[in-house]
Design a protein around this nucleic acid. Structure first.
Lengths: 196, 196
DNA sequence: CTGTTTTATTAACTTATGTGAATGAAAATT
DNA sequence: AATTTTCATTCACATAAGTTAATAAAACAG
């Protein structure tokens, strides 16, 4: 059975409750999966034909570069969606890996079902419009911050806005997510604690 | 009369042609505006209650920081949309200015009409879903590039992918868009031409 | 055309972050 | 508990990009 968490997620974006017929249909289009820590749910080069909703746990996506340096792109925990959207929409091979950092429960929806849901259930088309809309806006802000602010400022803001991430994610992954090396993050943290 | 350019933009994202009733309604929800070079269509602090589609010309958005340094966030020319989406959706004061770099023609849609369009015309809800979806995916890629690649690599890629921007935008705006200072962009260009 | 303002280039110096290596701490595995 | 692997810290040095300032070139206005 698909958890009520997803339903709440949808309703909170819609700003209204969801007709139970729509929710039934959505449930029939989704499946759930338990993921062990360190398990990989998508590998670069595979075709990403699913969206994942994290009901419980923590997952992240990253790109492996030529010099074996992992570039972390997204971090998703309870109530966030994660996928390789580029691959999902373009039907080209995935550029990211997606991996669990904690034992997790996720809800999966396949591309076919996603498209059916959008076409058949207007309220879901609407939900996904709002989901991408919001994701785009917050991604824009993250981009601007990364372009125009220093690593220490980025770290501070993450600490304020998503302390969850800092508590639950190992430092080398956090560093990559912030766009710096673990050594630099160490430095920043030290300066911060010395400054007190 | 609202230009056919917008219609083509919508249809290209939808992947199908648009029923003429839907297009009529969309037209009735939009207005057009001619903008002179250097004109500002949105100021920081105002409430941004419109989306703009650039039919002709070139506009850009930027943030003014404490030290009077402009941070360029978006550059939009023919066939792109531009707005302060954060303000548009949250109804909070705008954080960006939006200004024309060339004499431009734009199509405007107000928030009220945007919402009506989404609710009344399923094909438009669908269009905006796809629009934000695509914008999100390409913004994600821009973010990753900015986090993990050097300025010269970012410049090269822009040169390949949107040479339009490099031809039409003055260097100090381009530099800010790339997240560097004009002096650094000069340096990069020099290295590039010496390298030949 | 002339002068004024805006934009681009170059150079010398500073600073934040990367790099590589050594060490220590923590976590996982046996 | 002992061993091995993973992760975090620290340091010395390298490098990309920022800063300041001077000058040149281009765009604009009268």
């Amino acid at each position: 059975m698909i958890s009520e968490k997803l339903r709440k997620n949808i309703e909170s974006k819609l700003g209204t409750s969801m007709p139970s017929a729509a929710w039934k249909k959505m449930q029939s289009y989704c499946s759930t999966k338990a993921i062990k820590k360190k398990e990989i749910v998508l590998r670069e080069g595979q075709f990403c034909d699913q969206l994942f909703f994290v009901e419980k746990g923590l997952m992240y996506s990253y790109q492996v570069t030529n010099d074996l340096d992992n570039q972390v792109t997204q971090i998703a925990y309870e109530d966030f969606w994660i996928s390789d959207l580029y691959s999902f929409f373009s039907k080209k091979p995935a550029i990211y890996h997606i991996k669990a950092l904690e034992d997790s429960h996720i809800v999966c929806i396949s591309r076919d079902n996603f498209e059916k849901a959008c076409l058949e259930i207007p309220v879901l088309e609407r939900f996904f419009r709002i989901l991408f809309q919001n994701a785009y806006v917050s991604n824009q802000r993250r981009l601007i911050q990364n372009i125009h602010e220093e690593a220490s400022a980025r770290y501070c803001q993450l600490l304020e806005q998503k302390p969850e991430i800092i508590r639950r994610v190992p430092q080398y992954i956090l560093a990559s997510y912030l766009g710096i090396k673990p050594q630099s993050l160490s430095r920043i943290r030290k300066k911060w604690s010395d400054g007190k």
